[in-house]
Design a binder for these strands. Sequence first.
DNA 1: TGCATATTGTACGGTTCCATACTATCATCC
DNA 2: GGATGATAGTATGGAACCGTACAATATGCA
Lengths: 167, 167
Amino acid sequence: MLLLKELPTSKSLQRFLLRYPDADISAISDFVNLLRAASDISVALDKLLAQHHLLQGRWWVLVLLMREETQTSSPSDLAEKAGVTKATMTGFIDGLEREGLVLRLMDNDDRRKFLIRMTPAGQQKLDEVMPDYYRKVHALMSQLNQPDRDIMINSLKLLASRLDVMK
Amino acid sequence: MLLLKELPTSKSLQRFLLRYPDADISAISDFVNLLRAASDISVALDKLLAQHHLLQGRWWVLVLLMREETQTSSPSDLAEKAGVTKATMTGFIDGLEREGLVLRLMDNDDRRKFLIRMTPAGQQKLDEVMPDYYRKVHALMSQLNQPDRDIMINSLKLLASRLDVMK
DNA sequence: TGCATATTGTACGGTTCCATACTATCATCC
DNA sequence: GGATGATAGTATGGAACCGTACAATATGCA
């Protein structure tokens, strides 16, 4: 996600309005601000994870594995739950395996499959990251009062559910 | 930005709470929902631009150039305004130049520099994209009533301005 | 003037992601 | 049981990014 750091000057805004008179300036401004704020927040999460030598993609995989009682899943299943392609998941697993945080095991029932299992080192890594993550997310979200926070989240959810209007 | 498609089951949530009892579940849930909604919106923007054979990075460059009266700027200036490194901007400009949407001109005042100028084809591309963009962003943002929209944007801005609490 | 320092743009190598195409394996249906 | 089609995982090649290092050029200061 890429975003402009600089909002337009009123002078350049006028030039845009001259050329595109139908533009809804306040809608554009809100839209850009929304994306920029979310991008900044995502970057902050990246930095938090980087302090533990993790990246969002690999971290989600560990979280998904911890959700499983057996701490085991398949690449396809992980890909679907993480919302990435199978090819992307292959890359994540490669990285995690290289660092010893997960194992690839044969699945004797279906020889096309692998079983991906979190190792003790993987669990240890999560135990190191999650308390930090929870603490900092709590600190961030506490900056908002509850009514505003509810309205913000519900509004975002509503927008995300109405994205078909952009087609 | 990568996001889980699936929220945790209550069963796996209990396992997380057992291991990390201090977790603020509602903060985490809101945080993840925020990032996921924003990511979905960003993907929708990508798709809109893709219909015009553009990508976010290159598109912002054209928008920045249009903001300039001379439709001209330098790679360093563009990089700073777009919030990317100079190296990344070099790549964007390469792509835009290859497609004939911008030109690299010598700067006779400072021979280290280039002047990047939008071509008529570049302006034509923007004239094709921007009305579509404006129309669809208006359609999306109109899904919210004004008070909620204001609260959402202000809350997001406030969060983005308080990201130091995550350090 | 000359020399240290800063700036500009690029090359290079790295990561994360995707789309596509492929092999191996499984499931189905005649 | 054999062909057909679906599915699992990966390889490959691409784009968008970054950090670092570099050559060329400009600037400032003794």
